[in-house]
């Protein structure tokens, strides 16, 4: 391991680190939004939209991000839709993540026991009130572990952005290897960079899961 190589390449990695973080945050927020909307469409069984949501989830979950990115970046121009690599990447991540988040939310709603729902009905709550005061608040809590797992998953998936040459972390490392061949050092930096993002985040999310769980269910 040559430390000069590492210190010299540090600025590039810091830049890649920033791009990975930025695109992850935008992608994850977008995926949460899409996922929340889709899960509500499914919960309320909104006719038409619901079938559309099912088709979307099916396609999104059963194809790799890499193919989704190629399709958006290289395929869509055939339809006259030209997007930059970065925008394609973010759209791809939202397209992929939206379905995972939707299933996490839905799983949370479904975790609410039948007896909770009947207790609400017995009080005369309408479907909308039942959702607003009983199912959604508890369902969101129940979906936190799955949402957290998706956050980690999506950050890792940004490494695939390298195939459309977005200069995030993985792309930075591969470019440097291509130029200077110091693969040991660059790969070491790459792994460390992901560890810096993901280890504290995964610890924080575990802590959050416990807290949220305790706050709502007391165990």
């Amino acid at each position: 391991m040559n430390w000069t190589v590492i210190t010299q390449s540090l600025p590039q990695f810091v830049a890649g680190f920033g791009i990975t973080l930025k695109l992850s945050v935008i992608g994850i927020l977008g995926a949460l939004l899409v996922g929340a909307i889709i899960s509500l469409v499914q919960y309320f069984r909104i006719p038409g939209l619901r079938q559309l949501a099912t088709v979307y989830i099916e396609i999104s979950r059963n194809t790799p991000l890499l193919v989704q990115l190629f399709f958006i970046f290289y395929g869509l121009p055939g339809l006259g839709v030209k997007l930059s690599a970065t925008v394609s990447g973010v759209f791809g991540l939202i397209f992929l993540g939206g379905s995972y988040m939707a299933e996490a939310f839905t799983g949370g709603y479904n975790a609410i026991s039948k007896s909770q729902i009947e207790s609400g009905r017995a009080l005369g709550l309408t479907d909308l009130q039942l959702a607003r005061y009983v199912v959604l608040p508890q369902g969101l809590t129940a979906s936190v572990p799955a949402l957290a797992a998706n956050v980690i998953f999506l950050i890792k998936e940004t490494s695939i952005f390298t195939v459309i040459a977005i200069p995030e972390l993985t792309n930075t490392a591969l470019d440097l290897i291509g130029l200077y061949y110091n693969s040991n050092e660059y790969l070491f930096e790459l792994v460390v960079a992901y560890a810096i993002i993901l280890i504290p985040l995964s610890l924080a999310l575990t802590w959050l899961e416990r807290r949220v769980r305790y706050a709502s269910f007391g165990n």
């Binding site: 099916e58 396609i59 979950r61 059963n62 194809t63 790799p64 193919v67 989704q68 190629f70 399709f71 290289y74 395929g75 869509l76 121009p77 055939g78 339809l79």
Partner: peptide
Amino acid sequence: NGHKNPSAAFWIYGMMFILYYILCAPLS
């Protein structure tokens, strides 16, 4: 083929979508 036929990418990547889907969807 991309130079002569800019929409080739749409179909080829679309085909890939379908093939992966055919493989994964029944399992899901």
